[in-house]
Write a protein that binds this DNA or RNA. Sequence first.
DNA 1: CGAAATAAAGATAAAAGACTCTTAAAACTA
DNA 2: TAGTTTTAAGAGTCTTTTATCTTTATTTCG
Lengths: 149, 149
Amino acid sequence: MLSQTCIYGIQTCIFLALPEQVEKRVRVSTIAEELHISPTFLSKIVNQLVQVGILKSVRGVSGGTWLAKPAQEIKAVDIVLAIDGNRIFNECLLGLPGCNDRNPCPFHQQWSNVRLQLLAMFQSSTLDTLAAKVNDLDLRIRQHKNNDH
Amino acid sequence: MLSQTCIYGIQTCIFLALPEQVEKRVRVSTIAEELHISPTFLSKIVNQLVQVGILKSVRGVSGGTWLAKPAQEIKAVDIVLAIDGNRIFNECLLGLPGCNDRNPCPFHQQWSNVRLQLLAMFQSSTLDTLAAKVNDLDLRIRQHKNNDH
DNA sequence: CGAAATAAAGATAAAAGACTCTTAAAACTA
DNA sequence: TAGTTTTAAGAGTCTTTTATCTTTATTTCG
């Protein structure tokens, strides 16, 4: 559904929207350790999100990355579009190019409804909402939150 | 969303459910040509579907493959489960193992709804329904149906 | 300015998925 | 039984995604 790269991007942004991190410069290596992601790989993902204006970053001592905008102004859909593009919101279930209302595949109508619901989910999910869920309800944004030691 | 292998499997089964093909032995090479799939690759997919009882096949002269059951008794979900497994119906949007109602990720509730709708779509799609759509409305099950020559 | 810390970038590697090529096995036909 | 046709199976290739390793550029601090 989402690429691993995109999943890491979303997890990172939610992490940066948590009250403990917000407005701070957080090292990529710290995020990578917290979320169990390879640091250099995450560095490239962070850079992608910097390019599209979702994150900011500075190098050097006391450098790091942080949300470029208030958390309530960043939606999950922005991250998905930045990393995976609009493929998942447009693509035919059977991968047929040019599948649309006038020239549909047999799944087109039902699949369009699913895609709309998917889009609505990502559009209605702002980082502050997601971070609040994680914070208030102790929800998970990484593997084995309560099993680590 | 679906693997290419699974897409080919679905297209093949819909093709075999069309009135022209049903109850006949259709050569894999014929299907491959019609649907623009590599014949040897399709052969393996057909074999997978034979193993789980969705298709039957015989080798040799006048051999071929055909639906193992009446088209109204085969659902799209059967094909998806046979080839891609139940991953797409169960897996966490963020790929977190053990994500469930009691230990959810921040997308869990909304994503569960989308997955249910997805499951409903595949469960309600029988091959006879899909084939009828393709046949009655001239819907597409392959690339460039009207552009070929 | 020099040293240390940190992100960015480039090259490489590993894994998975998609696809191909070749050979084997089975079924029909004469 | 011999020959032909067709699916089955095994091994190999190509591409994309994911991840790592190494070097470079930038920033801060003393």
